[in-house]
Design a protein around this nucleic acid. Structure first.
Lengths: 144, 144
DNA sequence: ATAAATGTGGGGATAAGTGGGGAAATTGTG
DNA sequence: CACAATTTCCCCACTTATCCCCACATTTAT
């Protein structure tokens, strides 16, 4: 399970160190792809398989579904950890996430996320401001 | 599985290098044909077979189905990788896709696509702008 | 304080992508 | 049928990117 928040950096070759705690789950292969709010999602092969099957079922004949599927599949990349436990992030994904130098790596149960540091800071702040609303919604769902 | 986005170029002889990661799946033969949204589709023989069966089931009384079937079948061309892992794209397909020099090759699970660079850039941008739908689709699939 | 583990940086070997010459095959024409 | 013209494909050479490896820095543990 992926948990926690880590502050790492990307080097000139586009490599990011994966937190040690996540490496065991990812060492057999991982998929990195576009996420929401301009972050990147990282899945294990098994998790990706489930997702890919769902995506593939969407109708090719519908233009909106087609563009969505294209963004997800063309925006994905199969990677392996190098001997130092890093992944290299393709340039088009770095551009998408606005990643220059400092990144935040977070764990979210079944996936890892990679954020440009300033994007993460901004996102977290706005999320905290909406915290009370959020709590109410959660209560409605019956979590708390 | 075909995944990712690659920036390649076409040479004067009409050849395009297939990304290394795709070659194993395509080395036994491939079909290249007109795709949707002015790109080219590339299938393995096996995938083409499946698709051809689907196409034959379409109701030929419907004008749109008829034209779609014509598009796919009449534009299809059987190709092999050369020893450098390239395919040569017939001229009428290059014209269809508006391919001059720079192309983007994308992986879409069971097919590869070839785009003129500027066409892909434009397509991707407009797809990203419809991001709110995207989030809803993801939620529907059960990622979040 | 010392040792171990984790994260970062960069040199160098290896592989991938690109361009073009020339042989073989194909087509067309006298 | 012979020969020229064109196309196709194999091969070599070059450039650029990728990956492996070693080394250092920084943090954490003993």
């Amino acid at each position: 399970m992926f948990l926690g928040e880590y502050s790492h950096s990307i080097d000139e070759k586009g490599r990011i160190a994966v937190p040690k705690k996540f490496r065991n789950e990812l060492e057999k292969g991982l998929i990195i792809t576009r996420g929401l709010d301009n972050c990147l999602f990282v899945f294990t092969d098994a998790e990706w398989q489930k997702l890919a099957e769902q995506l593939q079922k969407l109708p090719l004949t519908q233009a909106s579904a087609r563009s969505f599927v294209r963004l997800m599949f063309a925006g994905a990349s199969e990677e392996l950890l190098d001997k130092q436990g890093r992944i290299s992030v393709p340039q088009f994904l770095r551009e998408y996430a606005g990643i220059k130098k400092n990144v935040i790596v977070t764990g979210l149960f079944n996936r890892m996320e990679i954020w440009a540091e300033d994007a993460w800071t901004a996102y977290k702040q706005s999320a905290e401001e909406n915290n009370s609303e959020l709590a109410e919604q959660l209560a409605g769902i019956g979590i708390i």
